[in-house]
């Protein structure tokens, strides 16, 4: 498993990255943590002539916690796990990050890489849809924002243009009612099914609910209908089952070595029930 040759660039300014991307088009790729891209390069499934390393771009780093939370794209999963402010403001991030890959991968793997890569197996895209995050993209024509819920088009196909890079992720500070529930075969595996749930309550009833599912389609699935089914309920069985039914109508899993479609749907329903129950218990 040996990658093909390429030229290596390590610019220290964002503008230099954009310039390189503009110059080399689809022959160039940026690398953040590299834990999606490098394995693909080693299998020679990703071919590129120019590799642009983002590690020296200071503006891609940093976590800001306020009413809005802003996380630089180069923030690693390890940093998400160990950031005290984030643990208080949006504990669902650490709950999800903990279930991604293994310690070594989490030290290098970044939030930006995880969301921008477009791999349907990645956990953060679904979570970002759940949190209604916005992705800040910078390209030769400036900076724009795309909602996570609009970002994913198909497996590895996103709204990001080839000459743009993901700079940061922002989302409103979520409420306490959260859960990230993931079933996998072992440490290091992608989800058989995973559910991200955020609930808000008023008068002991759900006042707002957001539900997103991972690895159950070629894109993450934010199920508006599933969330809507919970609103106004106290997460009793009828409401939860309505949410589950709505979610099942929105996902489209395929068979792989984790199991057949019917199994994945069953697991999707189970993890969603568990996630709702846990999120409700935390509201």
């Amino acid at each position: 498993m040996i990658p093909a040759a390429f030229e290596y660039h390590r610019p220290s300014e964002l503008s230099a990255v954009i310039a390189l991307l503009s110059e080399h088009g689809d022959e160039a790729r940026v690398v953040a943590g590299g834990h999606s891209l490098i394995p693909m390069m080693k299998l020679r499934m990703a071919a590129l002539d120019h590799l642009i390393d983002l590690r020296d771009i200071a503006e891609l780093r940093g976590i800001e916690v306020g009413a809005t939370i802003r996380i630089g794209a180069m923030t690693t999963q390890h940093e998400l796990l160990t950031h005290a402010g984030l643990a208080e403001a949006a504990p669902i991030l650490a709950e999800a990050a903990r279930q991604i890959a293994d310690p070594q991968v989490r030290y290098l793997g970044t939030l930006g890489g995880n969301v921008a890569n477009g791999d349907p197996g990645n956990d953060m895209p679904g979570l970002m849809q759940c949190l209604d995050a916005r992705f800040t993209l910078t390209g030769p024509d400036g900076t724009r924002e795309v909602a996570a819920r609009d970002f994913y088009e198909a497996a590895y196909m996103t709204a990001r243009e080839d000459d743009e890079i993901l700079v940061a992720i922002t989302f409103p500070r979520p409420g306490a009612g959260h859960a990230y529930e993931k079933q996998k075969r072992k440490i290091g595996d992608y989800a058989t099914a995973a559910a991200a749930v955020q609930l808000e309550a008023a008068d002991s009833k759900v006042s707002a609910a957001s539900i997103a599912m991972t690895n159950l389609s070629d894109v993450p699935v934010w199920s508006a209908a599933a969330g809507a089914a919970l609103v106004g309920s106290a997460c009793g069985t009828p409401a939860v089952e309505a949410a589950v039914a709505a979610m099942l109508a929105d996902i489209d899993p395929v068979e792989d070595s984790r199991g057949p479609v019917e199994f994945k749907k069953h697991v999707a329903a189970t993890v969603l029930r568990r996630a709702i129950a846990r999120a409700w218990s935390r509201v």
Binding site: Q183, R185, T192, R258, G259, F263, H266
Partner: peptide, 16 residues
């Protein structure tokens, strides 16, 4: 006996 095969066993036995 991975997860989906165990699940299938339960399914075939009508335990769902």
């Amino acid at each position: 006996h991975d997860q989906w095969r165990i699940w299938k066993t339960a399914q075939d036995l009508g335990l769902h």
